[in-house]
């Protein structure tokens, strides 16, 4: 058994093509990003080596920390939203009528590109004739806020579409995982008199724990480096109130011609993601799943 499953040639054959691909296409850019971070470079002309100046500047850059905080908040909200997605998936995967149709409908937003989602939500949030404010006015709110223009509201307002955008993604994964549980296990539990809630909590969830852990990492890391909707819907504004790390990086590198500094921001983002992953792994480590 062990011998067959330890065949070095096979391992190499299975792993190397993919590894090679990411080493060249992802690791080389990562290393170069760290390297550009050591340069004063507008991205166009000559590079000047300036050592760690960009990185030390990061430490005192309020805008950077503000955007980091915003990214962290987004990541936390994304994590919390996983609970909701899990609940929906549990319902959909249970044998209720119409689950199949509902599941397909629930995943539709996932198919939309960011361009479409941004336009949709811009219309929802429109200060005077948007859906949200029209509703609020209908219910008697006198002067509903301009959601994307208020510095203290914009962050919350922009999180909603981002989290909604990914609903399909996580529901899809959870659903597939739950469907993966053999019926025999659940039937056995039913015969033992377990209630649906008990089955969900005591049997289904532990069985898909591996998948849940993966989604925790994916949603946290994905949120930390999130970019699309924020850039289109608010551009990080007003005055940086909805800036996240990736949009800050983009603005520095591409709009302000500080490619060196932008690269340092990008590299810092990578380190944050790495740190977050290690922490998550520590927190979710259980004895029975050593391989993960």
């Amino acid at each position: 058994m062990n011998k067959v499953m330890s065949n070095k040639w096979v391992i190499a054959m299975y792993v190397l093509p993919a590894l090679l691909l990411i080493l060249v296409l992802i690791y080389v850019p990562i290393i170069l990003t760290g390297y550009y971070g050591l340069m004063k470079w507008d991205g166009i002309g000559e590079m000047d080596f300036i050592g760690l100046s960009n990185y030390t500047k990061l430490l005192t850059d309020d805008d950077f920390w503000q955007s980091s905080l915003n990214s962290l908040l987004l990541a936390i909200f994304s994590l919390l939203s996983l609970i909701g997605y899990l609940a929906i998936s549990l319902v959909l995967a249970a044998k209720i009528k119409g689950a199949d149709l509902l599941r397909k409908i629930y995943l539709i937003p996932m198919l939309l590109s960011s361009v479409a989602i941004a336009q949709l939500w811009l219309k929802i949030y429109h200060p005077s004739n948007g859906l949200l404010n029209s509703l609020l006015v209908f219910f008697g709110v006198d002067n509903p806020p301009a959601w994307l223009a208020e510095p203290n509201l914009v962050l919350g307002a922009i999180f909603v579409p981002i989290i909604w955008q990914y609903a399909g993604f996580y529901i899809l994964i959870y659903y597939a995982a739950l469907k993966n549980i053999p019926d025999s296990v659940i039937e056995a539990a039913k015969i033992d008199g377990a209630s649906p809630l008990q089955i969900a909590y005591k049997i289904k969830l532990p069985l898909i724990m591996g998948v849940i852990k993966v989604t925790i990492v994916l949603s946290f890391v994905g949120s930390l480096k999130y970019f699309d909707l924020i850039y289109v819907m608010t551009g990080g504004g007003p005055n940086g109130a909805s800036e996240v790390i990736a949009s800050y990086m983009y603005k520095q590198a591409f709009n302000s011609y500080n490619f060196g500094y932008g690269s340092a921001v990008g590299f810092a983002l990578l380190l944050f993601c790495l740190l977050a992953t290690v922490v998550i792994q520590r927190l979710t480590r259980t004895d029975d799943e050593v391989e993960y």
């Binding site: 990411i22 296409l25 992802i26 690791y27 850019p29 994916l218 983009y250 990008g266 990578l270």
Partner: peptide
């Protein structure tokens, strides 16, 4: 671990290096 780190790079950081490559 090497593969997981691949999740962490912002796309726009990679444009210039990848283009050169």
């Amino acid at each position: 671990g090497l593969f997981m780190i691949g999740l962490m790079i912002p796309v726009h950081s990679t444009l210039i290096p990848l283009f050169n490559f």
